[in-house]
Design a binder for these strands. Structure first.
Lengths: 142, 142
DNA sequence: TATAATTCCTATATATTAAGTAGACTATGT
DNA sequence: ACATAGTCTACTTAATATATAGGAATTATA
């Protein structure tokens, strides 16, 4: 698993929208400042998050972004996979992979599968409700 | 953690050299055929593995490569880190990272640290002696 | 209804990395 | 000497990451 700036920004954006769930909208600029990201870059990521069904937007004056569902229903893994693609360390661990002749006897494949499962077990069991709670406890205001 | 072709080739090369430890040398071409890699690309990787102290070489006629230590003393993690660099999912989890203002209150950082530890716990506890044994059991001849 | 504040859309730029290719040079056993 | 290796340096090509730029469409509100 590799987290790029794009993924990092996406997760932080969702976190801040979680902190403001049912409170108020945040504009692209609001979010860009909060998470210290270039606003035009973040804009593209927000479009992507919208396509993924994680957020909604209101256009025009007084517009902005909001979560489209309760933070307790969004996991870190879901968001990360939507933005970054598959989290597996190498693509040969997929069931339908056919590009390797030695796949049946490969001793590495089971290792990568273990690594992938270990990571998934972590990120798929963390919700943004939990993260937001932690963030508040850590002193981050909505 | 992300494994590129380079890393994949490197691990497979070390595995085959493990299978032939104390038996015979393998040439670059031998290895390239065994692991289905472009030989000139593999060549560069072998130089890198040599610099890392994992393998030795004999030049000239009847030359080739061999492991420089017992396969039980080489872990998957060591080789992977030498070839691919750090395995952490994002660089901010390092102790000396200073590029992020919010690092102290960041709720994601501990997550990435958990993910990194989970992966390390796996790859740092697998030796090439173990892998070679498995490979033989799986039908792969030295 | 004009205006300012927003999101939405498309195109372009730049740097880095991945994954090789090519060719000449050096060493060595027979 | 010669065939068989490894060594070294440079170049190439494609993809990805990380943005920038500019304008079009939408909307609340004065």
């Amino acid at each position: 698993m590799k987290i790029t700036f794009k993924g990092d920004y996406a997760l932080k954006a969702i976190l801040h929208l979680s902190l403001n769930y049912n409170r108020k909208l945040l504009t692209g600029n609001d979010l860009a400042k909060l998470i210290d990201a270039p606003s035009k870059f973040l804009e593209q990521i927000l479009v992507d998050l919208k396509k993924g069904g994680f957020i909604e937007s209101r256009r025009g004056n007084a517009g902005g972004y909001l979560l489209s569902k309760d933070p307790s229903l969004i996991t870190l893994g879901e968001v990360l996979r939507h933005i970054e693609g598959p989290t597996e360390p190498i693509s040969c661990i997929k069931d339908d992979y056919t590009n390797c002749v030695h796949i049946d006897s490969c001793v590495f494949r089971p290792v990568w599968q273990r690594v992938d499962k270990a990571a998934s077990d972590i990120i798929d069991n963390i919700t943004f409700a939990g993260l937001a709670k932690q963030a508040v406890k850590g002193g981050l205001n909505p």
